[in-house]
């Protein structure tokens, strides 16, 4: 192992591991990129570093400045770590119904948490943060949903790493949140091989959409449209909490201890593998399982865990 001079240099270059034992189709390999191996514990370390360093380069932030971000967890945690190292003050707007470990991690890194209503989900956190950014023009608003440094981190990092480790990839499957992972990685992989299929996995909208007053309260991330997401994606499919947690548990059979959204990605890969003749599916595991222990995801009755997952943001 090499010696690093800063934890920031440990971000990226994550390992990929074969989980084909769980593939429903012997002609389809499934490989998982373990983003939980990043120092802050998730794929979001990549964009946290990228968004802050781009803002430093263009002079929009200075040491000691207040930064504001809407996040249901991992981006906030990644930013909080990078801000602590670099000396910025971070405020995170977060739906009140995220798992307790997420709040604890933010507090550990010294970020201030601003609650947004649980019923409004990520949409509500985004709306509140945008409003606060307008009211406080001296705060820096990195805004992962619109910041080109988000997909750039994946276009320059995640994508090339996958291509280097696995040029035989035929399908790339990842969760759709800000769309940064899919836009950046997907666009890079298609520049190398336009035949690669990019599949987006999303959680069911469920109760989250009940907070909307009308359709114009809806939201499509600017980075999705800026990267021509409608043409870039080949498929977008919903994976429910039961399937996610069932696959999350099965992943333990091959030694993978990951977050609940990894179960969704794996369920998506399995759906993909069962619909194609042959190929190599690469999926992203966004984080490790530690932050989800309090949810009982592995140990409690499946029905109870699934029911709770409907009311809590784990993804």
């Amino acid at each position: 192992m090499a010696l690093y001079t800063s934890v920031l240099d440990l971000i990226g270059n994550t390992p990929m591991v074969e989980v084909s034992e769980l593939s429903p189709n012997p002609q389809v390999r499934i490989l998982m990129k373990l983003e939980g191996q990043n120092p802050g514990g998730s794929v979001k370390d990549r964009i946290a570093k990228s968004m802050i360093e781009e803002a430093e380069k263009d002079g929009s932030i200075r040491p000691g400045q207040v930064l504001l971000e809407p996040s249901s967890g991992n981006t906030g945690i990644g930013l909080a770590m990078v801000c602590r190292i670099k000396g910025y003050r971070l405020k995170v707007v977060m739906p009140a119904n995220v798992s307790v470990e997420r709040r604890q991690l933010l507090e550990l890194w010294g970020a201030e948490i601003i609650d947004s209503p649980a019923a409004e989900g990520s949409n509500g956190a985004v709306r509140r943060a945008r409003q606060m950014a307008e009211e406080n023009p001296d705060w820096a608003f990195l805004y992962q949903y619109a910041n080109p440094a988000n997909p750039k981190a994946h276009f320059e990092g995640t994508g090339p790493e996958i291509w280097q480790d696995c040029p035989e990839v035929t399908h790339f499957v990842a969760g759709l949140g800000t769309s940064g992972t899919l836009m950046g990685t997907g666009r890079y992989l298609k520049t190398r091989n336009p035949d690669i299929q990019v599949w987006a996995i999303e959680p069911p909208a469920g109760e989250l959409v009940d907070g909307l007053r009308n359709l114009d309260d809806g939201y499509v991330p600017p980075i999705f449209t800026d990267n021509d997401g409608y043409n870039l994606l080949d498929r977008k499919t919903v994976i429910g909490p039961r399937e996610s947690i069932e696959w999350l548990r099965r992943l333990a059979d091959v030694g993978i201890f990951a977050g609940i959204s990894t179960g969704s990605a794996m369920a998506g890969a399995v759906r993909c593998a069962s619909q194609i003749e042959s190929g190599t599916v690469v999926i992203v595991s966004p984080d490790g399982g530690w932050k989800y222990l309090s949810t009982g995801a592995w140990t409690e009755d499946l029905d109870a865990v699934v029911e709770r997952a409907r009311h809590t943001l784990y993804f």
Partner: peptide, 10 residues
Amino acid sequence: ILPAVAGGGA
């Protein structure tokens, strides 16, 4: 039919 909303994993 569903309204488009910001995804969860952010």
